[in-house]
């Protein structure tokens, strides 16, 4: 049987978790000032992957009542064996972060501020801009009369932040629209 290291640690944990300070001859009244259980106790464990460098460290997310409460390295990932660097260690802080954009934002031409808009407005307006550009600038043939079927006036950058599956659908849809000026962080 292939006992995972994570499983092994949990087995150990189960045996010792009940030993509170009181069992160790310490004044319980004082000792209770300390957390008697881990903040992650009872949380669901979900495996994710660190979104920084390509070491690809697997990370365990601890999720309680749908809330992401803590994270740490996954000992079952043979490359990292559960360890993480500074950025990986901040995986939770990266996600649960007050600086994040959580609503679609729109900036009108000439405006000096963002305005919150709903997704319907954003999708329909962007689709219109895209179709207008495509209908206006799509090139079936180049100057030499060769068939090129492309759109020269729209570009797409990013992203290495995308999953493989996201990349696959992105490339599929862009090439269908005739957008070929595509690039991402592979070059910077």
């Amino acid at each position: 049987m292939n006992i995972s290291r994570r499983g092994f640690i949990k087995l150990l944990g189960a045996g010792t978790a009940c030993y509170g300070l009181s069992r160790m001859g310490v004044d319980v009244a004082q000792a209770q000032t300390y957390a008697m259980s881990m903040k992650t106790a009872g949380a669901k464990e979900v495996v994710s992957i660190c979104p920084y460098c390509s070491c690809g460290c697997n990370i365990i997310m601890f999720v309680k009542d749908g809330k992401f409460i803590s994270s740490e390295g996954d000992p079952d990932y043979p490359v990292s064996e559960g360890s993480l660097c500074a950025k990986g260690a901040a995986f939770h802080a990266l996600h649960v972060n007050e600086h994040r954009i959580v609503k679609p934002l729109y900036r009108a031409p000439g405006s000096d501020k963002w305005v919150e808009k709903d997704w319907t407005f954003m999708l329909s307006t962007i689709a219109k801009r895209m179709k207008d550009a495509r209908d206006r600038d799509f090139k079936v043939k180049n100057d030499k009369g060769q068939v090129v079927n492309r759109l020269d006036t729209v570009m797409h950058l990013g992203s290495a932040l995308m999953d493989n599956e996201e990349c696959a659908v992105t490339v599929q849809m862009l090439r269908a629209l005739g957008v070929y000026q595509i690039d991402h962080q592979a070059r910077v």
């Binding site: 570009m155 932040l161 995308m162």
Partner: peptide, 8 residues
């Protein structure tokens, strides 16, 4: 004239 930029 137009650009899409994701995570970049």
């Amino acid at each position: 004239k137009g650009a899409f930029i994701y995570g970049h």
